[in-house]
Nucleic acid binder design. Structure first.
Lengths: 118, 118
DNA sequence: TTACAAGTTAGAGTTAACTCTAAGTCAACT
DNA sequence: AGTTGACTTAGAGTTAACTCTAACTTGTAA
């Protein structure tokens, strides 16, 4: 699959995709005979997972760490699992925080509705 | 209240607090006779609210917009309420998204636990 | 009164994550 | 065969939100 199609599927610009490759977030991208990138389904899966981690607030540096472990093979499985479990924990905490913020915001809005704010 | 105490209470560095003033996020900060800032309880309340908006992902530019409306007085009350209601909506959507991500992450972790990942 | 901690300003530097530019090569269609 | 659009690289520029520096003034405790 060429750059344009891949870009559309994963929702990242060609610029961003080349940048991700440069910083080591996207490895082993194949090339066709003319030197253009040829993406595979595995690339789609990986970038989709990267997008998920990104959207849950994981910095690219940490995602690169996970990517690097993944590349090192099956004896990093436990380390990767632990990394994800830690992230799961902080995501749970984040959601709880956001729910608190939502409640406080709802309270503030109710004060506006009752005309208690000037 | 002087800079140091205020900084400790609101959890922002003196640098950041001066920066917030410069960009119009923190207005009407009083000065004592020697030109040092003298913060009030109202400043604490405001910065606490700013922190909440920040933590729910509102960009400083939008918070400044709200701050500016607030300064314009009571005929901007409705506009402020609408601004907060919009933010409330996007916060709800954000939380839902995060919960989806959490479920997907839990699924991935369970695959690790079942030894289905190499 | 002498340290030294804390305050002040304008403006420069940093970090993360892109985003774009220039200058060129390659592919697909008419 | 020519045009148009997509691809390549290295490297520069951008944006948000700080964070720090330099040079100086003020406040406080011994």
């Amino acid at each position: 699959m060429n750059m344009k199609d891949f870009s559309n599927i994963v929702g990242l610009s060609p610029h961003t995709l080349r940048y991700y490759e440069k910083i080591g977030l996207l490895k082993n991208v194949h090339r066709n005979t003319s030197g253009h990138r040829a993406y595979t389904n595995r690339n789609i899966e990986w970038v989709s997972f990267v997008n998920r981690l990104k959207e849950t607030g994981m910095p690219l540096a940490n995602i690169i760490e996970y990517a690097t472990l993944r590349e090192l093979g099956s004896n990093t499985v436990l380390e990767r699992q632990m990394l994800l479990e830690q992230h799961q924990e902080s995501l749970k905490i984040h959601i709880q925080q956001q729910q608190k913020h939502l409640a406080a915001l709802a309270h503030k809005i109710s004060q506006y509705k009752e005309g208690k704010v000037s």
